[in-house]
Amino acid sequence: MKPSPYPDLIPSFEHERLAALQPYQVLGTPGQGLFNDFVSVVAKLFDAPIALISLVRDTDVVFVGNEGLPEAPVANREDSMCSVAILQDGLTVFEDLTTQPCALVNPYAAQQLRLSFYAGQALRTPAGMPIGSLCVLDRKPRRLTPAEGELLRELALVAQDLLHLQATQAADGALTLSLRGRLDGPLQQTFTRLATLAELQAYEPNPDSAEAQHYTDSRLDEARYLVQTMRRELQNMLVAGRG
């Protein structure tokens, strides 16, 4: 491993972390189908232009799920905020990178991509080793509400299950088709409901009104439904795969 120009990004357990990442390297192709579908929903749930599932490798970060950032399928490790997210137990949140950049990574990368807001949750192996992150980004400053923070943590659990299932059963083409068959329905239902909510909310001129809050609450309810459905289906398939 070559020395990093940002050594604080490298945890003391890096050797063990990279070993834990090995089974997931089969997922090292940027922008994969189900992961893309999932982060598309995540972006809509947060009303954000960008959502990513990342794997933090030795020297780079690959975005296996990429909504809204097609110009960056892979980033240098020192350029990516996901490298910071894997160092944290909880959420990593930067409300405005333009005025308060992260000192652990190269600030010019975010500037070049016109990124202001970042919120990420580390994704872990079943043994608890951080290998990547689920994150949402925006090109304008914003605040992550407590409800949104909890939602991001819950969605990260879904992303972990999805990564684990895809990695351990990557050679099973039938399982991949079965997984898509189980998840396509809930994903498409959520897409439709979120689109309807967005159309209705567009007619509400006052973002602080009771009606606007109702649409926000409805979006969170939709998110919780999706989390519960996807976790149930993924856990069932993980159990079946061990049988």
Rank of each mutant, 00 (worst) to 15 (best):
K140S: 14
Y118Q: 09
V158D: 02
E211F: 09
L152Q: 02
Y225K: 07
V239E: 13
V239F: 09
V239L: 10
A156Y: 06
I131L: 10
R143H: 15
E154T: 01
R242D: 11
L137N: 02
A147K: 07
A195Y: 00
A198N: 07
Y215A: 08
L177S: 14
L177N: 11
Y118R: 08
P126T: 02
R224K: 07
L194H: 04
R231F: 01
Q188Y: 11
R224V: 03
A170W: 15
A198Q: 13
A122N: 06
A210I: 08
Y215S: 09
Q188R: 15
Q166S: 13
P130I: 09
D217H: 15
L183C: 08
A195M: 02
S133Q: 09
G149R: 01
R153Y: 00
G173Q: 15
L197R: 10
R114N: 15
A171H: 14
L177T: 07
V158K: 03
C135T: 14
Q228W: 01
T125Y: 05
E199D: 13
T176I: 00
H214N: 10
R231E: 02
H214A: 12
A198F: 04
P130A: 05
L179D: 09
V136S: 05
H164I: 00
P146T: 03
S178L: 11
G185I: 10
V158M: 07
L165W: 11
S133C: 06
Q189L: 15
H164L: 02
A147Y: 01
L115W: 05
P205T: 01
Y118G: 07
V136E: 04
L157M: 12
R242M: 10
L179W: 03
E199K: 12
Y225T: 14
L187M: 14
H164M: 03
L187C: 10
F191L: 09
D172A: 10
V158P: 03
S116V: 03
L179M: 13
R124V: 06
A167R: 09
L226R: 07
E211I: 13
A170D: 14
S209T: 10
R139C: 05
S218V: 04
H214F: 12
P141F: 07
V227Y: 02
N206E: 12
P186H: 09
G132Y: 08
T192C: 07
V158I: 06
L177Q: 15
H214T: 15
Y203S: 12
T216E: 15
R219L: 04
A156W: 06
P146G: 08
Q169E: 15
S209Y: 05
L200Y: 13
A195I: 00
R153N: 04
Q235Y: 02
T216V: 14
R231W: 01
Y118A: 05
A195V: 00
R242F: 03
R153V: 09
A122W: 03
E233N: 05
